[in-house]
Nucleic acid binder design. Structure first.
Lengths: 177, 177
DNA sequence: AGACGTAGCTAACAACGTTAGCCGCGCACT
DNA sequence: AGTGCGCGGCTAACGTTGTTAGCTACGTCT
């Protein structure tokens, strides 16, 4: 359980937590400065005492996802099964589908690299790279597959009756050198 | 070159074309009912004589992408090289990266299936399915890989110095059974 | 001629992100 | 103890967004 405060004041942390709840419960359209302020019992302009703009709040939420995703993947890695990549896929898919709005927020825009905690992006990526025996190209292909599956699944792009477990397994056996 | 009118009036077609130009030239934020009307020399409310809401315009744009993507993939298929899947990947990637805003619009939301022309979704998917020898599971995995690569590439998620050609090739050789 | 549908218009509303400017409380320092 | 200041609220407002209501001019068909 890593520290997610990231140098933010307690009030700012509380705002991020509330924003996260609002996003996850009611979706991206509901994540509004006014609605967020409502939940906190304050008025919208007061939020700007803690964050320069809405984007900064969203970036904080992206950090949260990266942090938790890193933890989920590291935990899967630590389980050290006979098929580490399979374990990672399950963890990735499970986490993403459990937090679809957060996943979309973190994924459907250019990554604000400078605003993210130092090294967090790499930390999140490392379990996958290790499971690929350190091959950069393979790990990127694997990552793309996992992200593609999750993205298509979240947006309901597969036929409603598609057996996605089988699709995951097919990708896994193909990509596991 | 298929008919994209789809039962729409000439004026409505013109609106869709203009919306497409606006989106591709200036991005999703610029695709506004007022800006769209400006380009057409009319006022925003007049657009509602042709489309019930903004969503309907965007759905029409999604149809355009599906149509063109289907054509691109069918053309790649017709080239009948020794490695049909490789040909499809190049076509998919090329088209998507040539129209990133349109691709994002079509991809980053639940698919409005009922509002799409009958059979268009399936038609777009078929070249990939055929290249996978008819295997549903494999074609879904392949599709997820291609979409994931494009999505991550469009959003600048890969390291700036990443050799993405190699990643595509790695995925290709792994997935080409 | 008269009726009607088409396609434009203006005015307006609610909600959004954001800014400016005010105020009150509590802590720190002299 | 008094004083100053900054933190964190507030109201009012601006510009922009999607969208609706209601008016009007024009063309076509009876």
């Amino acid at each position: 359980m890593a520290d997610q405060s990231n140098g933010r004041s307690p009030r700012a942390q509380q705002i991020v937590e509330t924003a996260r709840a609002l996003l996850e419960e009611e979706g991206a359209d509901a994540l509004t400065m006014r609605r967020l302020a409502d939940r906190l019992g304050i008025k919208a302009p007061s939020l700007y005492k803690h964050f320069p703009d809405k984007n900064a709040v969203e970036t904080a939420l992206i950090s949260v996802l990266f942090e938790e995703m890193a933890e989920a993947l590291e935990a899967a890695e630590a389980r050290a099964s006979s098929d580490p990549l399979a374990e990672l896929f399950v963890a990735y898919r499970t986490y993403a589908l459990a937090h679809p709005h957060l996943y979309r927020l973190s994924t459907e825009r250019p990554l604000p690299r400078e605003a993210l905690p130092e090294g967090l992006e790499e930390r999140t990526a490392m379990p996958l790279v290790r499971a690929c025996g350190g091959s950069e190209h393979l790990s990127r292909a694997v990552w793309a597959f996992a992200h593609g599956m999750v993205a298509l699944e979240i947006h309901g792009r597969f036929p409603p009756d598609a057996d996605l477990d089988k699709a995951w397994r097919t990708g896994l056996t193909a990509l596991a050198a």
